[in-house]
Design a binder for these strands. Sequence first.
DNA 1: AATAAAATTTAGGTTTACCTAAAAATTATA
DNA 2: TATAATTTTTAGGTAAACCTAAATTTTATT
Lengths: 218, 218
Amino acid sequence: MYFSESEENYIKEIYHIQSVQGMVSTNALAGALGARAASVTEMLKKLQKKKLVHYKPYKNFSLTELGNRVALEVVRKHRLWEYFLVHKLGFSWHEVHDIAEEMEHVSSRELIQRLDHYLGSPAFDPHGDPIPDKNGKLKIIKQNRLTEVPLRKWVIVNALKEQGGHMHQLLKHYDIHIGTKLKVNKKFDFDGSLEIKMDKQTPAIISGEVAKNIYCTV
Amino acid sequence: MYFSESEENYIKEIYHIQSVQGMVSTNALAGALGARAASVTEMLKKLQKKKLVHYKPYKNFSLTELGNRVALEVVRKHRLWEYFLVHKLGFSWHEVHDIAEEMEHVSSRELIQRLDHYLGSPAFDPHGDPIPDKNGKLKIIKQNRLTEVPLRKWVIVNALKEQGGHMHQLLKHYDIHIGTKLKVNKKFDFDGSLEIKMDKQTPAIISGEVAKNIYCTV
DNA sequence: AATAAAATTTAGGTTTACCTAAAAATTATA
DNA sequence: TATAATTTTTAGGTAAACCTAAATTTTATT
């Protein structure tokens, strides 16, 4: 079965929203895609006909089992390409999203199979998000917000989510990346900033804004 | 300036036909693209408005300087991806065309720059075709059809052009690939077949059909 | 429960890239 | 060189994926 680039994008975005919110609304999806609600409704009818979504007019919707499989394939492609871009071509993790957004639509299954093998079947992409395996299975690890981690316990950074801003500059400055070991010494309730301590470095203060986007294993 | 996937395909195809025939006709282009003449005319007007082609109604046309630059960029992307697919992912040369056809439309310049560097700036793709460098420069080597090469002279295979058939099976059987050293012992005018001799192998007969698609350096 | 607000869908357009069939221009042939 | 054949263009349509504005349905509020 063939899916257009647009269909794939809709499915992928439904998958993402669903994984956070359970059910998806027309407006939420429109917002995420940068499209208008009317366009979403139209596409929804198309996806329903292809048995990719459960949808009743005026109601929230979700992916069918088939829809989920398709979404996981697209996510797998996206994240494998991100891994390739960072670990083979030397891009930094914050630069690869848009490029992978294009590459994820290349259709060859054989290509992805070989790419996966070539990369050593990685389980996580450069942002720390899990890469679905060939069967759509995800290695789930708990991603705790640095803002909610117990004080004075050593933790390891396992994910960084950039919102399109320039957080990566700050992280580079502090030399915080996936794998970094650190602990939170204090929380300043006034502005939500944290004092953190890293191996062989004097303690530093990071804003709550940044800390919110750093996830770790306790 | 942005070009759609379709526009890129038209430009690339004009480039290919042009490189053989000098000027391009509506029908020839339609044939090469699997489209109808009317569609070609329509696109031609669009490409002309964007100053990519020299075009007068009812006349043959060709790429402008700008069109040529764009074509070379697309060709560069196509061939670099082919090289990647063969030398990094282990595909065989005859399997990569269609995949590269999709990958060539990924737009990031930075990506291609890094890919090129990662691959070691190769000058030829797995079919033996030259890969344009960043400035569009091609390393030209003479590609002599095996059918037209002097008898009893050692030559080296430098290109293989598969027409979509199963020639590669035959070539694999004979163990003929780019870099193979061989000489033509005899030509049989009756059916155009050739007796060839390779290092450490007893002479073999190959059909004119196959020989036509093998190119070499004398 | 009635009404206001918000969310969603429908109706009717647009653009891109195709198409067929008919008309026009060019080229080849008698 | 007139006419036939071929090539190319024009005219008019279709499908996908978007849009705005208006209508409808659902949800929230008084």
